[in-house]
């Protein structure tokens, strides 16, 4: 089975804050890591490869330093890695990120299955997988929580929905996004680190893609525009209560009573 896994490098912390006075973003360190949700996608691919054989390709998009997450994927067992990296890709929104990835996935060779994590911890939209599937013209199922099995032409998966556990057979080539905890991700292996340290990572720039029209990429191609960013508003009607615990408990009791939260069960 030829599996492509999409991974992303994200900031090590999601605590990007904005100073409400000056409007300046406060950067809290620059260390990065692999999007934690992608570890589950990669682990799913590794399990499928163990069972059915094949090869695992990882594709990422980002600045040159994002090669680090591809190296990490090698250390977990991925076979090939490609990084879409070009200044012209910068400022991409969901649509253009998905489109660029679709171009990169195609440039990386044939595939039977694409696996994406549920979402990223920085963008948090959980929409890139579905858009990518649309650009590739293949069916997708989001939120897969279990893989039942595969045959030469299809995959059987379980999807955890609010009211049902749905078992579905999906024809390959296809795309799935997997839930956190589908499998416990393995740790990077020292042995693989040594074995893959000189493995080449394919860097894909605009010139390497089938569609080389720069207006389809990056900020230029992005339909959405961030008009402004601002800090979340704080609550305006606020009280602070201090004092000994029993007094606080009594005050809270009175408050709940006054506001009719205590009468229901009586």
């Amino acid at each position: 089975m030829r599996i492509t896994v999409c991974i992303k490098q994200v900031p090590g912390t999601s605590q990007v804050e904005i100073d409400p006075e000056t409007g300046v973003l406060k950067r809290d360190g620059v260390e990065s890591k692999m999007n934690p949700f992608d570890l589950y996608a990669l682990e799913t691919a590794l399990r499928l490869k163990q069972r059915y054989g094949g090869r695992i390709t990882v594709v990422s998009m980002g600045p040159p330093q994002a090669q680090a997450v591809i190296r990490e994927a090698f250390m977990m067992g991925a076979d090939r890695g490609f990084l879409l990296s070009d200044r012209k890709f910068g400022g991409a929104d969901v649509l253009v990120t998905s489109y660029t990835l679709s171009q990169g996935v195609r440039a990386a060779g044939d595939f039977d299955l694409i696996i994406c994590g549920k979402q990223t911890t920085d963008g948090d939209t959980a929409q890139v997988g579905a858009e990518l599937a649309e650009f590739l013209g293949i069916p997708h199922i989001a939120g897969v929580c279990r893989i039942e099995g595969a045959d030469s032409s299809s995959l059987t998966v379980v999807q955890d929905l609010p009211l049902h556990r749905l078992t579905a057979k999906i024809a390959m080539p296809c795309l799935i996004t997997v839930e956190k905890d589908i499998y416990e991700p393995r740790l990077p292996s020292y042995k693989l680190m040594c074995a893959t340290s000189d493995r080449e990572i394919g860097v894909l720039t605009l010139a390497d893609l089938a569609d080389r029209d720069a207006s389809h990429y990056g900020l230029n191609g992005s339909p959405t525009q961030v008009k402004r960013i601002f800090p979340p508003e704080k609550s305006d009607r606020q009280e602070k209560w201090d004092g000994p615990a029993d007094a606080l408990a009594e005050r809270l009791f009175k408050y709940l009573d006054e506001h009719k939260f205590l009468q229901k069960l009586g």
């Binding site: 969901v94 948090d124 959980a126 929409q127 579905a130 858009e131 649309e134 997708h140 989001a142 339909p223």
Partner: peptide, 23 residues
Amino acid sequence: GTPAGRSLAPRLAARFRTGLTAD
């Protein structure tokens, strides 16, 4: 923003090559 909506909206946005703002 339900499981179905979060699959359908991005699929449509890509089909119409237009913007989607999630959540």
